[in-house]
Simulated assay, not measured.
Amino acid sequence: MAATRERPPWTGDERTQLLGWFDLQRGIVRLKCEGLSDADAHRVLLPSSPLLTVAGIVGHLTAVEDLWFREVLLGEWGDGPGLGPDAGEDDEFRVAGRPLPALLEEYAAACARSDAAIAAHDLDDTGSTALHAVGGATLRWMVQHMLEETARHAGHLDLLREMLDGETGYY
């Protein structure tokens, strides 16, 4: 997944606009990680939230991509940290010893799996309730939720990056 700096077209259809904003936020996540050292990506800056690191956020976003578009939409268990029937609370944020480039590759792979699942469904399709009751939600709802989730964490990354090295900017 290439980081994008492009907003969706002003007059595009609903799907184009919705997925365009989602891709922009995903791209911002990657952009906030560019040029960051692995040590800084794992550095704890908020003592009250020791799992909220740049690397931890990337791990979390990877898991929620698979949670919503693999487990909830398709009804298939995910196999990464924080996924599956035996997942522990916040496991996806626990990324010690996992280099940032590897985490970003895993995030790109999860986004590609999500994109394939999304492309195969209409926005009005509902997911599977085989694993999660929320599978009764429409794909539209899932994408809107993931847009919100990704944007919120892109904002966290923006603040963490500024605290780490002074790097600022929307995109």
Rank of each mutant, 00 (worst) to 15 (best):
S49M: 10
I118S: 10
D124Y: 10
G82Q: 01
E148F: 11
A96H: 03
R30D: 14
D90F: 12
Y107I: 00
S37P: 15
C111S: 13
W141A: 04
G135F: 00
H145A: 07
E71F: 01
P101C: 14
C111Q: 11
A119Y: 01
P50V: 01
D38Q: 05
L123A: 11
D66N: 15
E106N: 08
V143W: 06
G78I: 02
D91Y: 03
V95L: 10
F69V: 10
L36C: 11
T126F: 02
G59Q: 02
A41C: 02
T62E: 02
A130C: 08
A109L: 06
D66M: 08
T138C: 01
W77F: 15
M142R: 13
R140N: 14
V134W: 00
V95R: 11
D91C: 01
A120Y: 12
E89C: 01
L123M: 12
E65I: 04
L51R: 11
T53G: 09
G56V: 08
A119N: 05
E92T: 06
A119L: 06
G56C: 11
P101R: 05
L61G: 00
A110G: 03
H60G: 07
P99T: 13
A120P: 12
T138W: 08
A119H: 03
V54W: 02
A120H: 13
H121G: 05
G56P: 12
E71L: 08
G88H: 07
P50N: 04
L104E: 06
D66C: 10
E106H: 08
G35L: 04
D66R: 12
R140E: 14
A116N: 07
L123K: 11
G78A: 04
T126G: 14
E92Y: 07
F93E: 02
R43N: 00
G136T: 07
Y107D: 01
L73Y: 10
T129M: 08
V58K: 11
V54P: 14
R70V: 15
L131V: 05
P99V: 06
L139N: 09
R43M: 09
P101A: 14
L46I: 15
G59V: 02
V58G: 11
T126C: 03
W141V: 02
T126D: 03
V44R: 09
L83T: 08
P101M: 09
V134D: 13
E106P: 10
M146N: 14
E149C: 09
A109P: 11
D115N: 08
Y107P: 01
W141R: 08
W141L: 07
G35M: 03
D38N: 13
E34L: 12
A39K: 06
L147D: 03
G135L: 07
W77D: 09
